[in-house]
Design a protein around this nucleic acid. Structure first.
Lengths: 139, 139
DNA sequence: AAAAAACAGTCAGTTAAACTGATTATATAT
DNA sequence: ATATATAATCAGTTTAACTGACTGTTTTTT
């Protein structure tokens, strides 16, 4: 084992790359990418969010968010309505069709993750998630 | 804690994004990005590699590799010489200047990683690395 | 109440990474 | 000797992300 592949950054990147590539393949029939799936998940978990809310939480640029939402709306997965309390912002909602997509791909996403994490035991995977959550919540 | 931020992919992505952003900032004065630093690390650990070797190991597209190496060569961090046993390929070597760059930023990289991983104990970080290496080596 | 500042979202245009497909020079297989 | 494969390169395309300007709306200041 050499220096260059000892870094967390390198290792994290490789594991993630693997997951993303596989997951993206499973999304092709739905014409969205992994990031858009993430946005949809967020909207599902945080109904009535504005585009700003999502941008901040997911750390995706506001102008990029416009096109993500445009895309999801065109495909009928998300609905934009003006927020009656602040007509500058939208109140975003997932549609039933969007919910179906989420559900139908959620299991697949988990399968992919388990596939990549296969070298770990149940307990190790549990620990890994614990660590990641601990890091993320303090970011 | 909700569904959308429970996935390994999401969490891995956030942690990595954090590390990469911070690390990239520290590389600005050297005019290279994190990926090029990775390439340089690889060449250092695997002297006489061809561009193909690096592409495969780091999973970076061969045509993209051309421009990375062009860039590193222009800056004097890497030297291309033809491989005498196969004149189609190059034999890439890090220069002393490249080695200096690696060394001077290696500690910084580790600082960044420790900073992001601060919420974990020493032991937990050790475990995390163990897990990641286990996964990566079976990819 | 009017004017100024701040804000959410949008859009046109730019930048940078990554890919496609073709090409050159060299090596290997038939 | 000929055909096939390979490493690197290049021109051109696609895509994600960003910059800066702009519209309409809300909040703050005077």
């Amino acid at each position: 084992m050499e220096k260059w592949n000892q870094s967390y950054g390198f290792l994290l990147g490789k594991v993630l790359q693997q997951m993303e590539t596989k997951f993206a393949e499973g999304l092709v029939p739905y014409h969205i990418n992994a990031r858009q799936y993430g946005v949809l998940l967020f909207i599902n978990g945080n109904p009535y969010s504005s585009q700003k809310d999502i941008s901040e939480n997911l750390q995706i640029d506001r102008t990029t968010m416009v096109s993500h939402i445009d895309h999801l709306e065109t495909l009928g997965f998300v609905e934009r309505t003006r927020n009656p309390n602040d007509r500058r912002s939208y109140s975003l909602m997932i549609t039933p069709k969007g919910k179906d997509l989420l559900d139908s791909r959620w299991e697949f996403l988990n399968d992919i993750e388990l596939e990549v994490l296969a070298p770990l035991s149940n307990q190790e995977r549990q620990l890994l998630k614990e660590f990641l959550i601990k890091i993320w919540t303090t970011l």
